[in-house]
Amino acid sequence: MHFKATWARRFDPSDTVRRDFRRFDGTSVLVPFLSDPGMQYATSFDDLGFKVLQCFYKMAGRDGKLDPKAPLFSMLVFLPHRRDGLRDLLRLAVTEPDFVMRCAPRREQVVSPCLLPKFKFSFRFDATDALRGLGLAAPFDPLAADLSGAVSNMRPEGLYVSAIEQMCAVEVDEEGTTAVAAFYTHTSPTYSLCERPPPPPMSFVADHPFLFAIVEYGKGEVLFLGHVVDPSS
């Protein structure tokens, strides 16, 4: 999967600021933060100890042009209240069904300050042993593998899988996200206008380890789930 998208409302590079990000070991690192105070889709789950910020991508078709019928993608940023609260968030995300989408903010409110660090990382691992551990062994066995349906001209010695590697990479900056752009209108069927009074202003400063997810909002599908513990590395 390749995901490349542009923010519906891009962060102004002139508003990018440098400030400290606090790591798990108590040290801090100076990194650039995207800044966009004002009305944002955000909410705070004080009883569970975290806040969520939702940033939408432009809705674009396969030709890259704006298309209001295109899938609605967004990034959800889960920021624990405690600087060491990421582990509890990860546990909720992987053990509770639909946790990520249940926490998606449903209304806008004033968020000031609103700061999110720029980050870029990649990760590669050999999934062969993990798949074997799940019981998928035959494709890796030269004597047991039967992949004749995958090719038109099978070699006499047969075909088998020698290894499977998975690689993921995510980059977030002022323009958008590369891992895979989107505008949101109030006519979107996934939202309804809210007549309740707006909640009081909140701050969202992601200056310590946090969880993030890239989702397809309309279908409620989580495409990517990851966490940031040091945006400088």
Rank of each mutant, 00 (worst) to 15 (best):
L116E: 00
G61K: 07
A179H: 07
I164W: 07
Y41I: 01
D20I: 02
L193D: 09
M154T: 14
D84P: 03
P139I: 10
L34P: 01
D67L: 08
F140Q: 08
R9Q: 14
R155W: 06
K58S: 14
V52L: 06
L72W: 08
L131K: 07
H227M: 03
T27R: 11
K219W: 04
K118H: 05
V180S: 14
S188P: 03
L79H: 07
A150C: 14
F224S: 04
K120Y: 10
R124N: 07
H227G: 00
R82G: 13
M59A: 15
R10G: 11
G64A: 11
L90D: 12
V215T: 11
F119H: 09
V111W: 03
V170K: 05
G49S: 10
V29P: 02
D98R: 15
T95G: 11
R155G: 12
D12L: 11
F212C: 06
L34D: 00
L131R: 05
R83K: 15
P117V: 09
A169C: 09
D36M: 11
A169W: 06
E108F: 01
S162A: 15
A144D: 11
T190Y: 11
E216Q: 14
P156W: 08
P113R: 07
A179W: 03
R10K: 15
V111A: 02
V94K: 13
Y160E: 02
A179P: 04
P37A: 03
S232R: 12
M154Q: 14
Q54M: 15
L193H: 09
S112Q: 10
P200V: 03
A130L: 13
V222K: 01
F119K: 08
M75Y: 10
A70Y: 10
R19H: 03
